[in-house]
Amino acid sequence: MSATHEIRIAGFGGQGVILAGMVIGRAAAIFDGKHVTLTQSFGPEARGSAASVDLIVSPEPVLYPYLTRLDVLVAMSEEAYTRFVPELHPGGTLLFEQDLVNFQANRPDIHAFGIPATRLAEELGRKFILNLVMVGFVTGVTGIVPADAVRKSIADSVPKGTESLNTAAFDKGLEYALSQKLAAIHQ
């Protein structure tokens, strides 16, 4: 992987897609000394419609602020998956919510990893923390941002009083990534 990472997190409104991007971006920019530019598509994004957030994480200042070579796609809905997986650069990484995405192994040139993030969130008692489960999974699989930096970022990013719950969700996703030993799904 090149030193610069281009990440898109996509799903539907209400899943906490934007917060997931903010947690990763803040972790890299504030707690890991990277240059980070986060952009999001601005449209009529009410609950239930498409939502996405893009991140460029680089050791160098980011000049062009939009994605040109998508390395990491985090798909939290079927629509996000079908819409964006063609944009994933060869050699790129797909991370998907396996209960919400009907994964087709038709891109042998990418690495794909699934996680039942919604179910894992429900095990912790709150479905809405699936975004932090995904953040943990992204952290474990890609290693783009150190886990400690993400934990600090969570404390600064989530509503007061929910830090421990969100950190537990993060740890759950991180553990899942490590315990699965991350065998890439190839057909």
């Binding site: 903010m22 920019a29 952009t39």
Partner: peptide, 9 residues
């Protein structure tokens, strides 16, 4: 709009 809506350190 780009500068207004982009998030950085």
């Amino acid at each position: 709009e780009s500068v207004g809506h982009m998030t950085e350190k």
